[in-house]
Design a binder for these strands. Structure first.
Lengths: 149, 149
DNA sequence: CGCAACTCAGTTGCGCACAACTAATTGTGG
DNA sequence: CCACAATTAGTTGTGCGCAACTGAGTTGCG
């Protein structure tokens, strides 16, 4: 029988850690004029350009309600362009502009800064990442059993 | 030299896990008509009633910009009352109403549901919680060195 | 073919998070 | 005592995150 005490709860730890990391990113990303979710989209595009909104949503677990305005802001900032697909006019392909590609250089140092801030060695990062992925998987499965999509 | 690849990043794992847990809470808290941050405030008050806004903010790491409207909603819902302190009229004390106290019974089962969803034993929870706390500590210290408050 | 079911992006509305600010009160040094 | 700094809660504005919905486009099936 678990208690209702705040300090016992793993979830609060997760919530606090996530906000701490985001607030560090806020400082680090100031130079690039990006928010953390915007940075995630840029990461995804730097890895593979010319993606559909649907694909970005699948990778980042974000729906169009979040992505559409975010992508609009990235486009206004001149980092990406959006083109409706000719062969399927429901889809929109997101591509990096030259400025968007160039921004990658300014981002090169970020992972190391974040890594240093976490003071974890590579093995520690890998282990924690694995545990978090397992947790996410487990929690999502449980939620879908409770409230089917 | 860390890479800019999305899957390498611990931060994304953290971000994903935190959102997964919150979305599970959304389902579980539907009965209580609470959001997760509202639930956190109620947890804090169930543990110790009659707290200043400042104290709640310190415990949950939330500022008045988040807490003030949240508390207003909890008051509108009839769960808490707010009273400006007589001895220091800058401060506001938040207290549970009878309905707020009664809601605790409906929340009793929640920690176990969340615990089951995470499929971690007590030791696993404790270990992960400790790791997350250490991570939060480390990241916050680093951020404050970078951008002093 | 015709039309219902589905897909995809976008919009709307709400509640955080947080920066920046305001207003009121309290504390402090000269 | 009084000007000035500090404290406390609240407000405003922006950007997620997500549910619910819209509308255009596509697919499938009789």
């Amino acid at each position: 029988m678990a208690s209702l005490r705040l300090d016992d709860q793993l979830c609060f730890g997760l919530y606090a850690a996530s906000r701490a990391v985001t607030s560090l990113y806020r400082v680090v990303l100031e130079d690039l004029d990006l928010t953390y979710p915007q940075y995630l989209v840029m990461l995804a595009l730097w890895e593979r350009d010319h993606r559909l909104v649907k694909e970005l949503g699948a990778e980042l677990n974000l729906d169009s309600g979040t992505l559409s305005p975010l992508l609009k802001r990235l486009q206004t900032a001149g980092l990406v362009v959006r083109n409706r697909q000719a062969d399927d006019e429901r889809s929109v392909r997101v591509s990096l502009s030259d400025a968007g590609k160039a921004l990658r250089d300014k981002a090169q140092g970020i992972p190391d800064v974040i890594g240093a801030a976490m003071s974890l060695d590579d093995a520690g990062v890998a282990r924690m990442r694995a545990e978090l992925d397992r947790l996410t998987e487990s929690v999502n499965a449980y939620r879908e059993a409770l409230a089917p999509a």
